[in-house]
């Protein structure tokens, strides 16, 4: 269950030539259903968990989950993109929280 789309937050990137998640995915795995205007994953088993879609989503509707077959319910890792920093908020299955923030670009 790699990217998990929150249907309440996803707006299908309406108005853009393509949605940010389908633009970002290196595996062409994200698409927007024209009937519901919501993003979905074509096949979770093909996901590399690179988190490109999660970083790109403008409405923070996508969360990456580790497949249950290899990791337990439920941990979360959320990237917050700044112009030259990234902040990661991580919560483990026992509720332990950790934050990581650092510079990811020098030119901005």
């Amino acid at each position: 269950m790699p990217p998990r789309v929150n249907l309440n937050k996803c707006n299908g990137c309406e108005g853009l030539p393509e949605s940010k998640c389908e633009e970002a995915c290196p595996g062409d795995l994200m698409a927007v259903d024209p009937r519901t205007n919501k993003a979905y994953v074509r096949f979770a088993g093909d996901c590399w968990d690179c988190m490109s879609c999660t970083k790109a989503c403008p409405t923070k509707a996508i969360e990456t989950r580790v497949p249950y077959q290899i990791g337990y319910h439920k941990a979360s890792l959320k990237p917050i993109m700044g112009s030259n920093t990234i902040t990661w908020k991580c919560v483990d299955i026992n509720g332990k929280e950790e934050t990581y923030k650092y510079r990811n670009r020098m030119d901005k």
Binding site: I70, G71, A75, C90, I93
Partner: peptide, 12 residues
């Protein structure tokens, strides 16, 4: 990045 999530999903 998802390896950090994996460790969290193992509670490790």
């Amino acid at each position: 990045p998802s390896f950090v999530l994996f460790l969290a999903a193992r509670g490790q």
